[in-house]
Simulated scan of single mutants.
Amino acid sequence: MVEQQQFIVIGLGVFGATIARELTRLGHDVLGIDTDAQRVDRMADEITHAVIADVTDESSLVELNAGSYDVAVVAIGRNVEATMLATLQLRELGVEKVWAKALTNQHHRILERLGATRIIAPEYEMGVRISQELNYPMVHDYLSLDDDYFVVEFRATDDLVDKTIGDLVGELDVKPLVAKRHKQAHTNPDHTWTILAGDKLVLSGQLEDLRKLVNNL
């Protein structure tokens, strides 16, 4: 079971509100902050705490005891200056993990220098994910572990039915991690595993090998 943590989410637009709600649903303590009273009112019954505050004023974060929280998410919309000030102040108050939303490459670089531990570019990241799914329709999901190593989940195509994982992988340096069948997950399936209709496979490997594999499907 995941240990309960305390999160601050600054900015309760669609992006921030979604994060705040989901973290609350997962059992965490969430403080949502926004300057817009209507947004705060909408979230008041959905998350642990929702308050109206201007985070560009350092005293506001001090009064809210922001430094005692485990993680902060700065999800402010178009106000670049507010994002930078909030990130800087949260780090100075001792918040170890600060995730901040960047709008441009320059904004990304500045947030890095201000101490943001993770920088989010939701429009860019979603655009990349959608383009990958459009290019490889059989790919259900993927995770980048570094610049060149990925974990990919994909649905078995009709051409793969009755073939083995060994037939699929061939000489490529790709490791099968999980085979999903009828809501059951079989970990580390060997190369003799026979693929049936409806199966999902989770594989890991270098990007070039995974591209070759998917292009052959």
Results as ranks from 00 to 15, higher is better:
residue 156 A to W: 05
residue 10 I to N: 04
residue 188 N to F: 15
residue 131 S to M: 10
residue 202 V to N: 02
residue 52 I to S: 01
residue 183 K to T: 00
residue 4 Q to Y: 02
residue 208 E to D: 15
residue 30 V to W: 14
residue 179 A to D: 01
residue 15 F to Q: 03
residue 37 A to Q: 15
residue 54 D to Y: 11
residue 146 D to Y: 06
residue 34 D to V: 10
residue 106 Q to A: 15
residue 175 K to H: 02
residue 143 L to D: 07
residue 21 R to A: 09
residue 75 A to H: 00
residue 203 L to K: 00
residue 24 T to C: 06
residue 175 K to E: 08
residue 144 S to E: 01
residue 98 V to G: 13
residue 4 Q to W: 09
residue 145 L to R: 14
residue 169 V to L: 12
residue 178 V to T: 10
residue 101 K to D: 06
residue 52 I to L: 06
residue 203 L to H: 00
residue 167 D to Y: 04
residue 177 L to F: 02
residue 140 H to D: 13
residue 90 L to K: 04
residue 150 F to K: 01
residue 31 L to P: 07
residue 133 E to P: 04
residue 203 L to N: 12
residue 41 D to F: 14
residue 108 H to W: 10
residue 160 L to W: 15
residue 182 H to N: 10
residue 87 T to K: 02
residue 44 A to E: 13
residue 43 M to Y: 13
residue 178 V to F: 08
residue 117 T to I: 05
residue 204 S to W: 01
residue 183 K to F: 02
residue 194 T to N: 02
residue 118 R to I: 05
residue 217 L to G: 08
residue 33 I to S: 08
residue 7 F to W: 06
residue 122 P to D: 02
residue 204 S to Y: 03
residue 104 T to H: 00
residue 58 E to C: 12
residue 169 V to G: 07
residue 169 V to F: 01
residue 55 V to Q: 04
residue 155 R to V: 14
residue 50 A to N: 15
